[in-house]
Every structure is written in structure tokens, then in C-alpha cells.
Write a protein that binds this DNA or RNA. Structure first.
Lengths: 208, 208
DNA sequence: CCATGTAGGTACAGTGAGTGAAGTTAATAC
DNA sequence: GTATTAACTTCACTCACTGTACCTACATGG
């Protein structure tokens, strides 16, 4: 339909090979999540997932480093998005309020299928571990961003890491504890962070 | 030497069987940590650890659920200690300042061998995961303690969990980031928590 | 449009963590 | 002194994950 002049660099149409690879990956992740929730994580073997996706078991590991990783197929993309949002603010924005708005928009991207994953997540240690690694990537991103704005020094490094861990801790808690009661994580996170950090998280409150 | 009248309940001398079991466990953990740091985590097999301790590989798993768990043999006892300290305060102590003092004393129990573990810990994902599970136990303990003092409600539950996660996040960050620079974790944690939570963590500062 | 490199996949064989079951021995209980 | 049972062993098994060699179809440039 749309013949493409192949260009040396990026931004051309994906080639047939690339599409096929992505499709295989997507299919593996989809069947993995489906099987995990239908029959349980431990009751599902990698062989089974691969078979459902119509590839060999070996191929599974060409796409995901571990069985658990297939439950978080868009992890890297989400972290990248977050980092982009984090650095997207006007030059002299207060970094904490920029952080807050990056977190806020982050909640909006939650797909409904995430809910399925949350259930699995709370039950299966391997998946909790995988999710915790996710958190560490966010923490690193936040710490790096804060250090960038506050300047490099031992003191800021420790402070930045502490704040990053604390913030992600609050987000995780409101998502899991709050999620169980149908509380809006955006409002809860904002309120708690506001009490902890004061003004930068204060206003506007974006409350529900 | 000391013949013991066996009593039905606790607090008698440990029997020979109990002693043997503890000794096997201790030996397994010791050799595990030694081998992990001498030749690397992935280069050490459970078989090897068991052989070094003079038992069969199967026995290893009668003492530890996973290979990684052997690197944290005193985990449960430490958490128990922490919980005890947490609830040891005078009846109407401010829960946050009680939390703070429980954390403070916690740092003192650090054995020198912990340092070896920290190095391993930062390098090996499996051990990081194991440590993160540790953190979750502390978080649960803190959240439960806060809820106990603040009363049960959805709001306090979310808040308590958020604060617990945040506090542990700060501790983890000061231990790992601060540890690299030889910063005293007690002082750094106290200072950061003080800025975050204000008065309850304020005074006395216990600075180095 | 053809030659050729290569990306995505397969087949096979292996390692090592972790589990279930049945058996051995020696401390303990009665 | 006999019966229990806790700690351990042996054996056989499953399954996650890896290394290697190979295959095949798409891609690319001459």
C-alpha cells in the first residue's frame, strides 16, 4: 500500500522482520499473562507459554530473560516514558514539583490489564521481586534527576537517593494498600507526599 | 556436666538434637557466605556449600528455602528484635519517635560480616531480591505498629503503609549510598527523616 | 535480480535449583 | 527396653535457563 523509500537512519516503517519479532514478543507476553492468571504462575511452564504462542521454548528466552519478566513486557518503555516526562519541565521548575507532575501523569497510563497483574503480583514472590526491580529503576531515574538539579556532592547524592526511595515507597504503598479499597492513588499519593515534603507538592492539589 | 530436668515447656537447655540442628544451619550459612564472597554467587553451587558443611545437598534445603536465603541466616531473628524494640516504649510515647529510636538501636547490631554481605548484595540480583523481602517484613512491622497507635481505618492504613515504605526507603538509601562514602547511617537517616517528618524525629539529634 | 550476509528461530544437550518419597540412624519419650 | 520421631541421606524427578550448531527467509547492495 505505502511503498517506502528505505532510509539509512531511524523513522522508516518497521520492516517485516521487525514486525514479526515484535509480534512474537507481544504474543508471548499475552499468553504468559493469560496463563499465569488462568492457572497460576507455578502451574504454568515456559514450554507451555511458548507452545501457546507457537514458538519453541528456546525462543521465549530470546525475548525475555526470565519467566517472570514476561509479565512486565512494557517495563523498559514505561521507565523511558517516565524519564522523558521527568525532564520535560520548563528550565527552572522546582524539581520536586516537576517530579510530582511526572508521577501524576504516570498513573494515567495504567491499562486495565494492570489490574490483573496487581492480583498476581501480590500473590507470587517471583513477580513481586520483578516489580521491585522495576521500582529500583524509577528510583535511579528520580535520584539522577534530583542530582542533576541540585548539583553533585556526596550530600546531595545521599539525599537524592533517600528522597527517591521514599517517594517510590509512598507510591507503592498507596497503589497496593489504597488499590485494595478503590482509593485514587493520585490523590492519596499527592496528599501524603504533601505532608512529607510540604510546599512543592502542595498546589494545585489535583484532588479527585 | 549439668544434668537437666527436662521440662514440658520452653526455657530448658537445648537438647542435643536441637544443638546439632542449629550447628548444621550455622555451618551451612557460614560456608555459603564465605564461598559466595570468595568465588562468587553464581560460581558456587548448593552442592558445594553442603559438601563444605559436611552434609548432603538435600539437607541444605531442609534449612533454607533457597540458595539466596543462606546469605541472610539471621533475618527472622533480626525482624523479631526490631518488632520487640518497636513495642518496647513507654505507653504514650509518640509512635514516630519510638520508631526512630527502634531504628537507631537497630544500626548498632550490625555485625562486621554485614559489610561483606553488602558488597555481594549490590552485585547479585538474587541477593538484592532477598534483601528487598527483608525490607518488606520491616515495612509490615512498622505499618502494623502505626495502625495499632493510630487506630484502624482505611485512611490510617494507607498512611501507615506509605510512611513505613518511605522510612524503610530512606534507611535503605542511606545505608547503600551513604555506606559507600563511610557516612554514618544513623545520623544521615535521622537528618533526612527529620526534614521529612519534622518534630518527632527532631530531638535529640544523636549526631555523630 | 541475484549473491550473500544476517536476524529470528529451532533442535539438542547440558547445568543447577528445588521437590517428593522412602529409607537410615540415633536421640528421646514412655 | 521398646516405640517414636527428628535430622539426615539417597534417588529420581521437574523445570528454568544457557551454549552451540544449524536452518531458513528476509534484506541489501552491487
Amino acid at each position: 500500500m505505502e511503498p517506502v523509500a528505505p532510509s539509512k537512519k531511524a523513522d522508516r516503517q518497521p520492516t517485516s522482520r521487525e514486525q514479526q519479532r515484535l509480534e512474537t514478543r507481544r504474543s508471548l507476553a499475552e499468553h504468559a499473562i493469560r496463563l499465569f492468571s488462568e492457572q497460576g504462575y507455578y502451574e504454568t511452564t515456559v514450554e507451555e507459554i511458548a507452545a501457546a504462542a507457537g514458538v519453541s521454548a528456546r525462543t521465549f528466552f530470546l525475548h525475555f530473560p526470565t519467566k517472570a519478566a514476561a509479565a512486565f513486557p512494557d517495563h523498559d518503555a514505561r521507565v523511558q516514558d517516565f524519564i522523558t516526562r521527568l525532564h520535560a519541565g520548563a528550565p527552572h521548575t522546582n524539581p520536586l514539583s516537576q517530579l510530582r507532575s511526572a508521577l501524576d501523569t504516570g498513573f494515567e497510563g495504567e491499562s486495565p490489564s494492570r489490574l490483573v497483574r496487581y492480583r498476581l503480583l501480590s500473590e507470587v514472590p517471583e513477580l513481586r521481586d520483578e516489580d521491585a526491580r522495576t521500582d529500583r529503576d524509577y528510583e535511579k531515574a528520580i535520584a539522577a534527576y534530583l542530582i542533576l538539579h541540585w548539583g553533585e556532592s556526596i550530600e546531595t547524592e545521599v539525599r537524592a537517593n533517600a528522597i527517591a526511595n521514599a517517594v517510590i515507597g509512598v507510591v507503592r504503598a498507596t497503589l497496593s494498600a489504597g488499590g485494595a479499597y478503590g482509593i485514587d492513588p493520585r490523590a492519596a499519593t499527592a496528599e501524603i507526599l504533601w505532608r512529607m515534603f510540604g510546599s512543592p507538592f502542595e498546589d494545585p492539589l489535583h484532588s479527585v
